[in-house]
Amino acid sequence: MNRFLSNATNRIDSKGRVSVPAPFRAVLAQRDIQELYCIQDFVFPAITVGGPDLLERYERQIGQEDPFSPLANEMSLLVHGGGVFMKLDAEGRLMVTDFIRDFTGITSEVAFVGRSDHFQLWQPQAFHEAQAAAREERRLRGLRSN
């Protein structure tokens, strides 16, 4: 499978590292992603993580706009000003930096959440609350998760 699916919560070690779940590491290896593009999500208090192709997708969207337009500038502010490149260490761990902690509220645990072609880093309780709210919203609209 070459998609990021499901979710898992892992503890941050005393050096500020967290192990990326094995299924997520397998997808990274299968897609030959060596460098992770990490961006502050546009909607949720989460860090979106993908390969360089994720950044390229956002940059294609920016490139379709007039480079001097407010929209292009806002998009660049979010995509470039709210993004960093990171790498896993040799044991498959990611450093939980201030960039991640300050935006998400993560302290001692990280929820890894699959989002098909990328995954996200969440504070576990915030993830569970957002997922429950999304489920409730679908229920109220009469949609089922079949």
Rank of each mutant, 00 (worst) to 15 (best):
N2S: 15
R3N: 11
L5N: 13
S6D: 14
N7R: 11
N7V: 06
T9Q: 01
N10E: 13
I12S: 03
I12D: 02
S14P: 03
R17E: 08
V18Y: 00
S19H: 04
P21L: 11
A22L: 08
P23M: 05
V27N: 01
V27R: 04
A29L: 09
Q30L: 15
D32P: 02
I33A: 08
Q34I: 02
Q34F: 12
L36F: 10
Y37H: 07
I39L: 10
Q40D: 04
D41T: 03
F44C: 04
T48F: 08
T48P: 00
V49W: 01
V49G: 04
P52I: 13
P52L: 09
P52Q: 08
P52Y: 05
P52G: 10
D53I: 07
L54S: 00
R57F: 12
Y58T: 07
R60E: 15
I62D: 07
I62G: 02
Q64A: 13
Q64T: 12
D66Y: 11
P67S: 14
F68D: 06
P70R: 10
L71C: 05
L71P: 06
L71T: 13
L71H: 08
L71I: 14
A72F: 02
A72N: 09
A72P: 01
E74G: 07
S76L: 11
L78F: 15
G81P: 04
G82Q: 07
V84T: 12
M86T: 09
M86R: 01
D89P: 09
A90N: 11
G92C: 12
G92Q: 01
R93H: 12
M95L: 13
R101I: 07
T104S: 04
V110G: 00
F112M: 01
R115A: 13
D117R: 05
F119T: 05
Q120G: 02
L121W: 09
L121S: 00
L121V: 00
W122D: 03
F127A: 04
H128D: 15
A132C: 10
R135Y: 13
R139L: 09
L140Q: 15
L140W: 04
G142M: 05
G142R: 10
L143I: 08
R144G: 14
S145W: 05
N146T: 01
